[in-house]
Structures are given as C-alpha cells and as structure tokens.
Computed example of a mutant assay.
Amino acid sequence: MALSRALRCCQRIFSWIPVIIISSVVLWSYYAYVFELCFVTLSNHLERVAYLLIFHVCFIMFWWTYWKAIFTSPSTPCKKFQLSYTDKERYEMEERPDVQKQILVDIAKKLPIFTRAQSGAIRFCDRCQVIKPDRCHHCSVCETCVLKMDHHCPWVNNCVGFSNYKFFLLFLSYSMIYCVFIASTVFQYFLKFWVGDLPNGSAKFHVLFLLFVALMFFVSLMFLFGYHCWLVAKNRSTLEAFSAPVFQNGPDRNGFHVGLCRNLQQVFGEDKKLWFIPVFTSLGDGHYFPLRTLGESENPLLANEEKWLEDGGSDEESADENEPSVIIRTES
C-alpha cells in the first residue's frame, strides 16, 4: 500500500514536467523579447512601444488560456448517473451477466442516454460505479469518468473534456498567434545579426533562438490546432474520431454532427463576443447532446427523458438556472 502511494505521488510529480518545460520556455521568451530585443536591440522608441504593447496582449491571452486549461477540473457525471445503494447491491450480488445487463437497462430508462457499448450493452464504469452519459469516458490518468472526454493532454497535465475544451482550443490558437508575432517581428533582426549588421552580444543568441523556437512551436501547433478545428466542425472528440460512438442502430461517427454553426455553438456558446475570451460558455451540462437524426421511438432508453427534465436534470443545472442548456432534438 505504501509503495503504491509512493508510485502515485511520483507519477503526479513527473506529470508536471511538461508544464514546467512549456512555462520555462515561455518565460525565457518573455525575457528575450522584452529585454534583449526591445530594450537592447531596438533603437526606435515608437517601434519599441508598439512591439511591447502587442506582445503583452498576446502574452497575457496565452497565459490566461493556458492556466484555464490546466486548472479547470474535468466535469464528472452527476449523482443521477450513480447507482443507488439498492441497485448497486443488486448489481453486485447478481452473478449472471445477462441479468446484470438488464439491471443497467432498467436503470438507464430513467436517463437521457443514446449510446451503447460495442457489445450493445449499457456503458457502465465498474471503477466509478456510474452509468456513463453519452460521450463520457473513464480517464485512467485522472482516475475518474470525464464528461465529453477528448483526451488527456500531458502539456496541460489535465484531461481535456466538456469543462475545458474551449480553453484548450483557445490555448492552441493564442499559442500560434504568440509564435507568429514573435517570428514576424524578430525575423528582420535575425537577418541583421546573421549578416553582421548588428554587434555581437548576448542579444544575438536570444534573438537567433527566439526565431527558431517560435517557428518550431508554430509548426507543431498548426497541425494540432488544424486537427481540432476539424473535430469541432464535425462535432467529434478525439476518441470518437478513432472509435465511432455506437447508437441503437449501430456505430455512427456523425451521430452528434448537427451542422457547422450548431457544432461551434456547442463548444463556444451562442454569444460570439465571448468566443475568444477564456470564460465558460459551452452549451449544456455535458450529460446529453443534440443528435443529427434519431427518432424517440427508435430509442427506448429515452422514454423517460421528460421525467429527467422535470426532475431537474443534472445537479449542475439546478445549481445555476441561468446556465444555457441543450435539449435533445429528435427528428423522425
């Protein structure tokens, strides 16, 4: 037991190494750009002020989105998806798999669930003892079920899901803007140092490496950001891109695709003025999502959806009545 706790403690410590690396590189870039470039290399006062102003806006937005992606806790299923004491005891005491599956089916009839496991059974997490809502998966790193889980990102040391996916996308976008701004403003001084028009000194080293580091990070971020833009346009998570969610009629990668505009609103909200600010504006509560096309009669698990809404939905909805919600829209 003590050894297991020690290993988990070491794992948690080492998991912060990528965050420390990124933070160190960004802090060095701040010193190199502000002091070595703007105050040591630049001689034009107006140019220096303009560079510093734009740089600090990019720098602040980068840090703001980065720390929001790191420290926003992943959303977990509410209590309505947890087994009651009686149901849990009945489920654990039952030895027949078919009867266990039927127990979960009976419980799931009270919940807004569309998706199933690959076998067709109700998606149930034995470790968390919860019936998984649609798009919910268990994260082995966080050791919990996460709503609309996308992936666990080591660079933010956090599970990217419903609660912080917007922050993660903004982090990628502002990181690219930060790199592009540095590379574009440093390039001319990189050439001057390279051909010897500027004197050698500590600034030369910092300016040369600023360009290389900015371009290197931009290229890697560009592919990652482009991939996630495609996922948002299709309304898929990374896990759903590799393994299509299974519905009553079988797997369907586009099951949650409801059009580009509505897909964007799922992540960024309906108020476009808040799309580029790292405040939570995603629609719904992460427990259920609008579907592309599915008749209610085709899914007996949703027979009591109205009862779910009348009972108050999730705990998060009852805690904040002003939070915008997404009601499942079915089409015959």
Rank of each mutant, 00 (worst) to 15 (best):
H206Q: 05
V34P: 02
L208H: 04
G161C: 02
E36I: 03
K273Q: 09
W64G: 00
E310T: 04
S43F: 01
C78H: 06
A233P: 06
K88Q: 15
R12G: 10
V130W: 12
M149H: 08
L104G: 05
C38G: 14
L208M: 10
F242H: 09
F193D: 08
L215H: 15
Q11M: 07
M149I: 06
E321M: 02
C139E: 06
F55W: 00
I17P: 08
S23I: 05
I182M: 13
T76S: 15
L260G: 01
D106S: 15
F14G: 06
L221C: 08
C78V: 07
W16R: 05
P251K: 00
G313A: 05
L7M: 13
F223R: 07
P199M: 02
A244L: 06
Y30A: 04
F247L: 10
W194K: 15
I177K: 06
F225V: 04
H287G: 05
C179P: 14
P18T: 09
E143R: 10
L198E: 10
P199H: 08
F171V: 04
G250E: 00
G313V: 02
K132Y: 03
S173Y: 14
D150H: 07
R123G: 02
G255F: 07
F242V: 12
G161D: 04
I17C: 07
K68G: 14
H206R: 08
K80A: 07
I131R: 11
S237Y: 08
A233N: 06
M216I: 04
C142T: 08
C125T: 00
Y33I: 03
N304P: 13
F81I: 03
L224E: 08
I17N: 10
E143N: 13
A69E: 08
L27C: 06
S175P: 00
F162A: 03
K88F: 08
A244T: 10
P278H: 15
S173Q: 14
V279C: 12
V160Q: 03
F217E: 01
Q100I: 00
P112Q: 07
F71P: 04
A69G: 15
H206N: 11
Q266I: 00
W28N: 15
T65D: 11
I177T: 12
E240I: 05
F187G: 13
R48H: 14
E317M: 13
G284S: 01
C128H: 09
G269I: 00
A2I: 03
K272F: 09
I13P: 07
F276A: 12
Q188R: 11
A183I: 04
L294V: 08
V219C: 13
F124T: 05
S75R: 09
R90A: 14
L274M: 10
V195L: 12
F62A: 10
I327R: 10
K109D: 07
T293K: 11
R90D: 09
M149Y: 03
D134R: 10
F256L: 11
W308A: 09
F276L: 09
L210G: 07
F114H: 14
L3P: 03
K204E: 14
M93H: 10
F256G: 08
V40E: 12
P245C: 00
S243A: 04
A319S: 10
F35P: 01
